[in-house]
Amino acid sequence: MNKIYLLLVCILTGCSNPLEKVSRSKNPIIKNVMTNDAIYEVQIIYTEIDTSDTGAIVFKDYSYKLDQNEYFYPASTVMLPMSVFAAEYVESIDKINLDTPYAIAKDSLKNSVANDIELLLTENDANAYNRLYDLVGNEFINKRFRESGLSPSQISHRLDIENTDSMTHKEFIFFPGYTDDPVRSFKKEDTSIEKLQLKNTSKGKGYFEKGSLVNEAKDFSHMNYVPLSSLHTLMKRLVFPDNFDKNVQFKIEESTRLRILKTMNASNKETDVLSNEVGDYKNFYMQGDSINQTPDYLEIYNKMGYGLGTMTETSYISDQKNNICFFLSATILVNKNGVYDDAIYEYEEVGLPFLSQLGKEFYKLALLRKD
């Protein structure tokens, strides 16, 4: 963002916009990224939360470089909408619920959608994601994106397997109880997915395919996409559903909504970070520069993801000790060499320190705002 513009905004407004304050931070970690924000493809959304005189929750949103038509790879953040819409799908079927055991045809192993959702939200489990993808189908998910006003989101493929975009799904058999007949979710065929008509779906200068370097930009137009604004809105609707019209609220039981939130929060409290590697973290904003467990007074409800050089997190942070709360969502690309699928990305060197410092900057602003 143009520095002269930022200076003018701060002169006219007193820099009351928290995003303007953070973008002008003297912290070298923030400064390095913000002065090269086009290279890092940074997008940020921050929401202040107040209570009106009548007790109503009031949001005030601020955004930086936000563009829902500017593609970034969402990685495992797609598991948050997958969890919500899979819950909707199951709760729409008579005689079964999230805890009903199921087996996939020709497989004796039993599972449950509740367990799959837990694995998505706590472990970024690709196998659980793929099972729910097969159960629900991308036609249902993408229809719900549109109905919920979360376009241009699109789920197009499975994760970490061959034939990720196969249109044929497996048959699921649910077992409601000893006296009830099994409930079958028959094989379905996905509708064809059109290429994303977005900016920047061709990225970099090369990528590896089957061990060989291809010297051309990588095409992301056929891949999953959930814009930052949709992730941010989805999290707001999960935490404060009554602040939104009934027609865009999620079609899940209240107990299911609370269960999803509890699972996200518990994930941030139960495990110490074992190393400084990005894959060991449960959240980037408040934990990204520390191997310590999240303090008990911080309630963090989040979904983070990283892959192909992109790091993204959407989060609701509530400090029970200081009585402050806010939403924060951000994404950053850290692929200095411009080559994809080479496993050479600056996650620990650039992305993790930036997102961690970003979280702390907004946390400090929230504390000051309270005072």
Rank of each mutant, 00 (worst) to 15 (best):
L7I: 06
T77W: 01
D37E: 14
L121D: 04
G288R: 02
Y5S: 13
N142P: 01
S267R: 12
D125I: 00
D371N: 14
L274G: 10
G55I: 07
K65S: 10
D272F: 11
P152N: 05
A126K: 05
M79S: 10
T13N: 04
Y316K: 03
K187V: 09
C15I: 00
I193C: 10
G279M: 03
S63M: 09
L358N: 01
L298G: 01
K31N: 13
V226M: 14
P182E: 03
R158L: 03
I57P: 10
C10W: 06
N243C: 15
I45T: 09
E194R: 13
E91K: 02
D180M: 07
R131P: 02
D219C: 12
E299N: 14
N276K: 08
S112Y: 05
V78G: 06
G14F: 10
D116G: 02
L120W: 04
S23I: 10
N292I: 00
E346C: 01
I93Y: 00
I332V: 11
P81D: 03
E209D: 15
E277V: 01
N27G: 05
D319L: 05
V58E: 15
E346I: 00
E270A: 11
L358P: 02
Q43D: 03
V58T: 13
V33L: 06
S76I: 04
L234V: 04
E171I: 13
Y301R: 03
A217Q: 12
M34W: 08
E348M: 05
E299V: 05
T168V: 06
V136D: 01
N243K: 15
L213S: 13
E253S: 13
G14R: 07
E88R: 03
D289H: 02
N247Q: 13
S83H: 05
S185K: 14
H222E: 11
P176T: 03
Y225G: 05
K205V: 12
N292A: 11
S92R: 08
D94A: 12
T35A: 07
S166W: 00
H222I: 14
Y64W: 15
K195S: 14
S156K: 13
K21M: 03
G309E: 02
E20Y: 14
Y306C: 00
